[in-house]
């Protein structure tokens, strides 16, 4: 192993349930391997760190052509939830529940708990200044693990030499 610590940075720009997990899983794996982790939340990614939103992230079946996962133990093959059904009231809640149950069955924690684990493991979590202004949020609106509100330039300074992953 080289003496210099490897660094990785994630930019989380999405606020849907499925797009919340990649940075969490990879970031956690990185921490477990001794890699320095920084996560920058921007635009819809702000939902991941906003106290009122983090436990209500959703997954909409409309326009999601990849949503052909097995449902309730039934293998649907190449059939997903048709878009026309996806617009029915309750379909987003249904798809969200399905995904949350599948995630829990794998013993993967919910997003809020996962972020706390990341913070406890030493990951640095930052909120994007422009998004904070845009969405009229304050530091108090964020979960405890968020260290600060920083500008894009600050983030660039903080992640010198890091590998970047944009989600």
């Amino acid at each position: 192993m080289s003496d210099e610590t490897r660094k990785i940075a994630f930019i989380c720009s999405k606020g849907t349930l499925d797009m919340a997990y990649p940075a969490l899983i990879m970031g956690w794996a990185a921490l477990g391997n001794g890699i320095d982790v920084t996560v920058f939340f921007t635009f819809w990614g702000m939902d991941m760190i906003t106290k009122d939103r983090v436990d209500h992230l959703e997954l909409a079946p409309v326009g999601n052509t990849s949503m052909k996962m097995s449902m309730m133990g039934m293998h649907t093959g190449n059939l997903g939830i048709p878009n026309i059904l996806g617009i029915l009231p309750g379909m987003t809640a249904f798809a969200t529940k399905l995904m949350k149950d599948k995630i829990a069955a794998l013993e993967v924690p919910p997003v809020s708990e996962f972020l706390q684990m990341m913070a406890d493991g030493g990951a640095k979590l930052y909120a994007c200044k422009m998004s904070v202004d845009l969405m009229e949020l304050k530091k108090e609106d964020f979960i405890d693990g968020v260290q600060a509100i920083v500008t894009a330039a600050d983030f660039m300074d903080m992640t010198e030499g890091a590998q970047m992953v944009f989600i």
């Binding site: 921490l31 001794g34 684990m117």
Partner: peptide
Amino acid sequence: LRRITSTAGVTTKEMFALFPKG
């Protein structure tokens, strides 16, 4: 790591303090 912290009675913070860097 998650299995250790959820069943061995040691927190995430303690794990990273006991076995730093990975």
